Computed example of a mutant assay.
Amino acid sequence: MQKIIITGALGQIGTELVLNLRKKYGNENVLATDIREPEQGSEILDGPFEILDVTDKDKLFELVKDFKADTMMHMAALLSATAEKNPLFAWELNMGGLVNALEAAREYQMQFFTPSSIGAFGPTTPKDMTPQETIQRPTSMYGVNKVAGELLCDYYHTKFGVDTRSMRFPGLISYIKEPGGGTTDYAVEIYFKAIREGKYNSYIAKDTYMDMMFMDDAIKSIIQLMEADGSKLIHRNAYNVSAMSVDPETIKESIQKLMPEFELGYDVDPERQAIADSWPNSIDTTCAKEEWGFSPQYNLDSMTELMLNAIKEKDKLAQK
């Protein structure tokens, strides 16, 4: 990777991915794009930025050509709960944008990454230690998009030789980007509410286990996968990755080790709960570990300590 273009750069993963790639490859070598402008003073503006609607194929091709990109990281998408509110738009954006991005990768011979998700699994998928290769019959539009995306990336690799790579992300937890419409976002909200209000009502029910990972590990894993020897990649689209399987009570107990007064209640959202119930309790990450060395650094307690301290500091700076 030398010249990298990122779509959806202001999204949940994109924001931190841009900043980390610029530290490693240089500000001028990472072009961030999104459909909206960054906020004034955003670190994203420390390097090149362009407005891009990924459904606009001509503009996408123009940017890739002018930037002389050799790598594309396609992060633009609607997340699970948001996609369910407008499924036809989700299909147009998530799949139309992906096809355009893959066509650009084929035309300009770029290495290509796009994230998949545990949302690619469904209620008939084995729930515990879900295998790398298994039944994928999701019941959400987001999940349908992700399964189709995995297959489409496989097709572009086998048919056209595009170096496509991906991983099935679990819920991602970050203090930098606040929740943005995902089913697993309760696991982000709970930390912000713990600091700001001392209590939280979860829209996901007790005993609903889902996989999670700290955002730092997710970003490191993307870069690690993209730098891996392609000849060793068997399950390139898409690897199971995860750091922990938790339910709301598990996170509450971790927070209470540092904030004993923290209170957790429940106000379950039937729509998001239905999505969560269709996903695995835990997934098997053996293939990612064996094929490219996946190894997350943060467990629940180390992540909790970092999240709480970082949100405190973030709020202090915002008040100045």
Rank of each mutant, 00 (worst) to 15 (best):
I4V: 15
I4E: 07
I4C: 04
I6N: 06
G8P: 08
E16H: 07
L17P: 14
L17I: 08
Y25L: 00
N27P: 09
D34C: 01
R36P: 09
R36E: 05
E39M: 06
G41Q: 04
E43A: 14
E43F: 03
E43G: 07
I44Q: 12
F49L: 04
I51P: 15
D58Q: 07
F61S: 00
V64E: 07
F67T: 11
F67M: 04
F67R: 12
D70C: 06
M75P: 08
A77K: 03
L78Y: 10
K85T: 13
N86R: 11
N86D: 15
L88T: 14
F89Q: 14
A90Q: 10
N94K: 04
G96F: 01
G96M: 00
V99G: 02
A101L: 08
A104E: 08
R106E: 13
Q109C: 04
Q109D: 15
F112L: 01
F113Q: 13
F113V: 09
P115H: 02
G119M: 05
F121W: 14
G122Y: 12
P123S: 07
T124E: 14
K127I: 07
M129A: 01
T130A: 04
R137T: 07
T139S: 10
S140Q: 09
V144F: 07
V147A: 04
A148V: 12
E150W: 05
L151C: 08
L152I: 05
Y155M: 07
K159W: 03
F160D: 08
S166A: 10
F169S: 06
F169R: 10
L172G: 08
Y175C: 02
I176H: 14
K177E: 11
K177D: 10
E178Y: 05
G181P: 05
T183N: 04
T183F: 00
Y186G: 02
A187N: 12
V188S: 10
Y191M: 04
A194F: 05
Y200V: 09
Y200T: 12
I204S: 05
A205H: 14
T208D: 03
T208S: 10
Y209P: 03
M210W: 09
M215G: 06
D216T: 12
A218M: 03
A218G: 09
K220I: 00
D229F: 13
K232R: 15
L233S: 08
H235R: 13
N237L: 02
N237A: 06
A238N: 10
Y239G: 08
S242T: 10
M244E: 11
E249V: 11
T250A: 06
T250K: 13
K252C: 11
K252Q: 15
K252V: 10
E253I: 01
Q256R: 15
K257W: 02
L258A: 09
E263D: 15
E263M: 11
G265I: 14
P270Y: 08
R272T: 15
A274H: 07
A274V: 02
A274L: 00
S278C: 01
S282L: 03
D284V: 02
T286L: 00
A288W: 02
K289C: 02
W292P: 11
P296W: 11
Q297G: 13
S302P: 07
M303D: 09
T304H: 12
T304Q: 09
E305K: 15
E305S: 12
E305D: 12
L306H: 07
L308A: 02
A310C: 03
I311C: 06
I311Y: 01
K312M: 10
A318K: 14
